[in-house]
Amino acid sequence: MDRTPKIRTYSSCRPLFVEVDQIYHLACPASPIFYKYNSVKTIKTNVIGTLNMLGLAKRLRARILFTSTSEVYGDPLEHPQKETYWGNVNPIGVRSCYDEGKRMAETLMFDYYRQYGIEIRIARIFNTYGQRMNIDDGRVGSNFIAQAIRNEPLTVQLPGTQTRSVCYVSDLVDGLNQLMEGTDAGPINLGNPGEFTMKELAKAVQELINPEVQISEVENTPDDPPQRKPDITKAKEVLGWEPKVNLHEGIPLMEDDFRQRLGVPRT
């Protein structure tokens, strides 16, 4: 479960090569199952780990990109969410190790920018899915696809009307690269503004992968936001970026990858 132990230790952040001009700081579990498993280590990764990476960037005079999250908007009172929105986060909730940790990391990034002149880039990533994702990741995209392949009921958390906007991984990677190579520090939302309810997403997976599979409802987890949709106006204007892969194109690609790793061929 502990996937990012090294950046919490400063000695582990010493570069193997002296010439480093760009640092991509993506460390931190993003699935609620994983980041709530050890909440203290999660927030340490976000805070102490980010401090260590910023120290490395300062020493090397390297540009650093930090992957923040749409979770900084919490249970948003603004929809869709713009980068200027400060959010509505529960600072003592079960998800706060992640969302408040990311908010603190953004603060540290800008403090190092203002105090030391470090070149920073901040991406606020919305829900992402795609190939090579952990099959038992616990997030809705991987859950539904794995369940459909295994012929298990698709478990929709109540009430099922909560929305998410899911972006295919290749689009996200393009956005991160463009942000790093650009001139804007951010934060910049990176996500697909196509918005689906959990019931709609389950039905799309059912239709595309396994029409015979059932859809069942289960209890929700605490602090699950009812709406999440990025406003990507800034990404379009500043980076010239917008997602290209739609849901009905991305799901089959992820299905093929999951089937290969699960050893379950198409019938």
Rank of each mutant, 00 (worst) to 15 (best):
T4L: 07
R8G: 00
T9S: 15
P15I: 02
L16Q: 12
Q22F: 10
L26V: 05
I33L: 07
K36M: 01
V40A: 07
T45G: 03
I48T: 11
I48F: 10
T50G: 03
N52R: 11
M53D: 04
F66L: 15
T67Q: 01
D75L: 12
L77D: 14
T84F: 02
W86Q: 15
N90Q: 12
V94Y: 06
F110P: 08
R114K: 15
Q115V: 14
G117L: 06
I120T: 05
I120G: 04
R124Q: 03
R124T: 01
T128A: 03
V140H: 06
F144R: 00
I149T: 09
N151M: 14
E152W: 05
P153A: 11
V156M: 05
V156P: 01
D171F: 07
N177P: 13
D184H: 09
N189I: 05
N192R: 07
P193R: 03
G194I: 14
L201H: 08
V213A: 07
V218L: 11
V218D: 14
P222R: 06
P226G: 11
K229P: 09
K234M: 08
E242A: 03
M254Q: 02
E255K: 04
D257I: 01
R259I: 02
Q260V: 10
P265Q: 02
P265V: 00
